[in-house]
Design a protein around this nucleic acid. Sequence first.
DNA 1: TAGAAAAAGATTGCATACAATTTAATCGTA
DNA 2: TACGATTAAATTGTATGCAATCTTTTTCTA
Lengths: 144, 144
Amino acid sequence: MDKYDALKLDNQVCFPLYAVSKGIVSHYQPYLDEIGLTYTQYIVMMVMWEKKEANVKDLGAKLYLDSGTLTPLLKKLEAKKLIKRTRDKKDERNLIISLTSEGEALKEKAVNIPLAMAKCLHISEEESKNLYIILRKLMKDFYE
Amino acid sequence: MDKYDALKLDNQVCFPLYAVSKGIVSHYQPYLDEIGLTYTQYIVMMVMWEKKEANVKDLGAKLYLDSGTLTPLLKKLEAKKLIKRTRDKKDERNLIISLTSEGEALKEKAVNIPLAMAKCLHISEEESKNLYIILRKLMKDFYE
DNA sequence: TAGAAAAAGATTGCATACAATTTAATCGTA
DNA sequence: TACGATTAAATTGTATGCAATCTTTTTCTA
């Protein structure tokens, strides 16, 4: 137990977070491959399935991503014909993102992914709830 | 409560993980800026401070990163004169990474970072321990 | 109402990540 | 001991992320 102990990887809580986050995304990938999305594209589509319509700012606020990430990603989703990008006539600064019928239809194929992923996480219901609560607390800390 | 509920962002445990992981890294950045490292460079240095010597494979196993990520990153650390990269005379396939005196010295400047970061996480000791245990369980799941 | 300030995206630059492939060195074995 | 298999890094290609800056449009206010 020396003064450098805190600097050891195994004593950190941040590193497991970083590692598990990456692990989860890579576990998603086989399922996401079936519907032709990356993880980031998937969470954007999740917001769209729920909201039907949003601008870049809305998406960024919900997903904690900025336009530097979203702009090229949204262009890719548009190229896949899953969304439309149109300027708001009332305020040309706004880019309105909306679902195409193909984008809406993809929801049916995605609907089983959350359960499939939940089965990959071998933790109890209680641990999962606990994890959720702590993470939400940290998100509040970081982003509010 | 419809069949699409599981697809909502707020009902996912994976998204908070992804968001908190990014949040932590960005909270590290001001401290890391002071010692001129990115987060990934920092965790590589953490392993080096502990092990003194390692090859790319060792680092990858410890950090869950592959050579595609590590090779360019290690070249940058070498350019900063924090590490040396030398081929193993016994087995030329091995690239031996070792600390320079500058790299070793940087440990002194880094030693306060973990505590500073811990103070940023506004969760109780118990929650922190709990989080650590659950994350370690998930890491085992994903990577073993 | 003209010009400054603010807002929303887009762009640029840099640093990861990871899959897939390639290269070079070593090992295993027929 | 040749040579195919394996191993360790490096390379290539694609997709994020984020900071900083730029552009366009709108809002605010002197």
